[in-house]
């Protein structure tokens, strides 16, 4: 079974689904969305809000990644560049140019999109494994540039990023205010991703993923659609990275390193490639693993590797993907 075959298992008539249910979700997804929203409300009373916000940023990052891998069929190994540069530019513009919260975040998002356009123009010339290798190499180039440029602060990173306030009204230095904002953004991103996937645009992307030759023969400009999906994904990844920089008030070389790219891949794989809620499930598992194993140093890397191998061999569709085929619904 190929990746494409697997995706064809998702129900075929999204238009029928979307017409009936609130916020454009199918029934199963709406239930999951309500569960997610409840979890966002309850979680900060149980767990450390900063850790939760980190998870949310990675969920948004993985949603961006999944839009590309799951719904367009392009496997990028270079998303660290968008996430990391988004973080750098958000941090830098807030710390050095006096940009407020919204302007800084917008700067990060635009940076991600612009970089995505450049990467996309080069990388979509090849498909499949080449695409993966090219994006990896381009991201490594960005990493080396960041390592040498003065603006990134080298090993120190961009520190002391001011969080500012939302629309000049809500002080974001208060962790709780920031938490509710990030939680809302997360829920908004999930709604948005579901909308995009089920829009006519999303349908074309899926057609391209399942059968590029056929999509082309139907008159769609395949490369243009791929590029568009790539830029969207990069913009959202830049946004997520920027949000992370604001929350932690720092942007570092780790954000642009290969590690961040592989994290996006791992989260998406664990949660379920091509599922709306997979990134959320994957982020919770992968980041918890990292969090609780962190005191044991290199065991994190070892465990991540084992999880990778295990999921590829046994749960290739990811947790939600397996659920999906078991209950014959789409999540």
């Amino acid at each position: 079974m190929t990746l494409a075959d697997m995706k064809q298992m998702t129900p075929s008539h999204p238009m029928a689904e979307t017409a009936l249910h609130p916020l454009g979700f199918s029934r199963a997804r709406f239930i999951l969305f309500v569960v997610t929203a409840l979890a966002v409300v309850i979680a900060p009373f149980v767990l450390y809000p900063i850790f939760l916000m980190k998870i949310y940023c990675f969920i948004i990052f993985a949603v961006a990644y999944n839009l590309l891998l799951g719904y367009t069929g392009l496997m990028s190994f270079g998303h660290a560049a968008f996430w990391g540069m988004g973080a750098y530019l958000t941090a830098y513009s807030a710390a050095n140019w006096g940009f407020g919260f919204e302007a800084a975040l917008l700067t990060g998002t635009v940076t991600g999109a612009a970089l995505g356009l450049i990467f996309g123009l080069v990388a979509i010339r090849r498909t499949g494994l080449y695409f993966a290798m090219i994006t990896l190499a381009l991201a490594q180039m960005v990493y080396f540039i960041c390592l040498q440029s003065p603006f990134t602060g080298g090993e120190d990173g961009v520190q002391g990023v001011p969080r500012g306030s939302l629309l000049g009204l809500v002080d974001l230095n208060n962790d709780w205010n920031l938490y509710w904002l990030v939680g809302t953004i997360l829920l908004g991103t999930i709604i948005l991703s579901n909308r995009v996937v089920h829009s006519p645009f999303g349908q074309v992307l899926r057609a391209i993923r399942n059968n590029p030759a056929r999509a082309k023969s139907l008159g769609y400009n395949v490369d243009r659609y791929k590029l568009c999906a790539f830029v969207m994904s990069a913009a959202l990844a830049g946004f997520a990275g920027g949000l992370k920089a604001i929350i932690f008030q720092i942007a570092t070389l780790t954000d642009v390193s290969t590690v961040a790219s592989t994290e996006a891949v791992l989260i998406t794989l664990v949660g379920g490639i091509g599922t709306i809620f997979g990134p959320a499930v994957g982020s919770i598992i992968v980041l918890s693993l990292e969090h609780y194993l962190a005191p044991f140093g290199p065991w994190v890397m070892f465990t991540q590797g084992v999880v990778f191998v295990f999921f590829v061999l046994v749960f290739r569709k990811g947790l939600l993907g397996e659920f999906q085929s078991y209950f014959k619904t789409s999540l």
């Binding site: 079974m1 190929t2 990746l3 494409a4 496997m75 499949g128 494994l129 993966a132 592989t262 891949v265 794989l269 140093g297 290199p298 065991w299 994190v300 890397m301 070892f302 465990t303 991540q304 590797g305 084992v306 999880v307 990778f308 191998v309 295990f310 590829v312 061999l313 290739r316």
Partner: peptide, 25 residues
């Protein structure tokens, strides 16, 4: 072998992590 080539890439990536992690340990 019967699957999409991308799974081979993912598997060997995981393998690389696991082995490098082990050597670091």
């Amino acid at each position: 072998y019967k699957l999409d080539h991308l799974y081979g890439l993912l598997l060997t990536l995981g393998l690389a992590f696991a082995i490098e992690g082990l050597i670091r340990i």
